[in-house]
Write a protein that binds this DNA or RNA. Structure first.
Lengths: 192, 192
DNA sequence: GCGAGAATATACAGATCTGTCTATTTCCTT
DNA sequence: AAGGAAATAGACAGATCTGTATATTCTCGC
């Protein structure tokens, strides 16, 4: 029997296929059989790599958390050394994301929505992602010279999550610009 | 056969029971049979009042939209005539909501999350709610003397949705205060 | 008391869900 | 070529899902 944590081509392929379907249609809406048919993989292969659908979901969320933050911070790095530019690059990155063809909101917000009980492992995994993102935001705010980095990061985090939700509900990239303008104003106040 | 739109005690009771279960556990997670057992109502009674589960959900969302905005605006009215106080009363109202025992986020955000396809009737119903709330916010911003009421309302809407999501994910009322502080700052800038 | 409309219990259809089991085959390493 | 792990197909269990059909009972106005 294979180790449930080890990486393998089949495991990676299952996670990639499941991710695409879960993100497109929802965690509860997509069944195991649909994933298997789409991936062209046998059912026992899935259950040799993952103990359950729930563990599959959590593995995907944890992977997405790492990828999400790497993509975000990669865009921040590309913005150069100016701390203010770096912070506002977050909102450019959001705008690009919102405009992508397959954009369907934030999978972590959606996971919290689908598993609303705070004690549920999937809910908790999604929460950990939000905490990690806020920590990264706090670093950026501190570097930008905010007097209370955590306070500013909290406000920017609200703008970001609100923008994601609004962009999904209204199918528009405009919330990224609105959030950027508000964030810029708050940053100015927080560093003055 | 009864009219699907008419009000009746059984219909109201079904909607109240379904609302409680849907909000607590999720729209897809709760089955018809669970609602019927909890409400103590026969299956045919439900299908005499609603064509499908989807229609039941939409009816509940539309009712909640009206109740939600009535509750919010009621709190605004109670804040008195000062336009700035009225606008900031929105965030006090949020804090009370976040602190309530049964708080599980915003059912409309969660509906968008569970039915991510923008063409789905449930998704569209949830979007209409968000549009209606933003219109109400715009009125409040205009009354408070904002130079660009729609722009300010957009930013406040992002703060509100972000606060709801964050409060749900972190099980805390703190996002209401953070949003209030940021909103107050943005209001000052927008009226200066 | 009667009759009509509403609600009931119950069974059912047909699909789908997660997860298990078994027997076979494929594939890689030695 | 042989051994062993991994993947396969496919049946299966047992539950659950939405929605339908039928026949009975309840309730209430007249």
């Amino acid at each position: 029997m294979s180790n449930a944590l080890a990486s393998s081509p089949k495991r990676d392929h299952l996670m990639a296929t499941a991710w695409r379907l879960f993100y497109r249609d929802g965690l509860r809406a997509v069944g195991i059989d649909t994933i298997l048919a789409e991936a062209g993989v046998a059912k026992m292969t899935l259950y040799n790599h993952f103990a359950s659908k729930e563990e599959l979901i959590i593995s995907i969320l944890e992977k997405r958390d790492v990828e999400f933050r790497a993509s975000l911070m990669g865009h921040v790095e590309a913005a150069g050394p100016d701390p203010e530019k770096r912070l506002l690059a977050v909102f450019d990155w959001l705008e690009g994301w919102f405009g992508s063809e397959s954009f369907k909101g934030c999978v972590f917000i959606r996971a919290v929505s689908e598993y609303p009980d705070p004690s549920h492992p999937i809910h908790q995994t999604a929460r950990r992602h939000k905490v990690a993102v806020k920590a990264a935001l706090t670093d950026l705010c501190a570097a930008a010279g905010a007097k209370e980095p955590a306070t500013l990061a909290e406000a920017l985090g609200l703008l970001i999550d609100g923008a994601i939700v609004t962009a999904h509900a209204t199918r528009s990239t405009a919330p990224a610009r609105s959030a950027a303008v508000a964030a810029s104003a708050l940053l100015r106040l927080a560093t003055a």
